[in-house]
Amino acid sequence: MSQNILIVAEHDGRTLSVATAKCVACAATIPDAHITVAVCAADAAAVAAQAAAVSGVHRVVTVEHPMHEHPLAAAIAPQIAALAGPYSHVLGPSSTFGKDLMPRIAALLETVQVSDIMAVESATRFRRPIYAGNAIITVEVLDGAKVVGTVRTASFQAVGTGAQAPIEAASPVAPPTHTRFVSVSAARSDRPDLQSAGTVVSGGRALGSAESFQMLYRLADKLHAAVGASRAAVDAGYAPNELQVGQTGKIIAPQLYIAIGISGAIQHLTGIKDARTIVAINKDPEAPIFEVADIGLVGDLFEIVPQLEQLIG
């Protein structure tokens, strides 16, 4: 029996997020998957064209409405619920976009949600982390219930492009007006994106100040790396919230993660478990970060970081 899967595209109005290609990768592991991507946007053409090219996508459906200029869950959920009838699965990324949106869709469909899918065992059986990744459970969706899910993007490699899926327009339902976008204070950055960067340089409380934290940006620039931070560093105001890595921040899977002055609370380790290589620099040899580090260096970060910068050249 073929599984009809609807994926909600994440995008900024111009560019399809790489998280969507990771959702496609997850959906493609469901046996006999027939994959449709839904693009809700004020003007969907550009994003729909990118979605139609993602390998494994069979069809793209667009829903255009001025309310979708910004991704408000209250406005998008009824659109997806209206489309969802023929689908066995409705998936979105486990980003703040998907975490906000997907449960609202699940409730409109009066069905179950599987959060943070990290592996697919069958069309109804999935693995997901609980307790901040300290346990992995296998769950079975019962009685043929429609599956709404968020995909833990760090668990999947984005699929490539090359498809030429047909694009169809669906008519929008009138979204509610009780929720309005006001503003977003996104720090514009020329640096690689934290969630897709190959290398991440991350700093913790031991940096001691926002000024010292700048040192990490210089190192990151030399490594063409993204910059991350522990919760302690964000709470202390050394780095903005969008840099937070961990259970309540971003879950990332770079090739190389360099943790500088991060002690390694369980909640932080949750966010980096899938990194290929973890480097830890910390003056405390007993810091828990060393338990997960592939390469550990005990020492004063204020000496080591400038040395690294110089050695990399």
Partner: peptide, 11 residues
């Protein structure tokens, strides 16, 4: 608190 920064909405 969203992935790209801080978003403000009115409800």
């Amino acid at each position: 608190e969203i992935d790209t920064g801080l978003e403000t909405i009115e409800v």
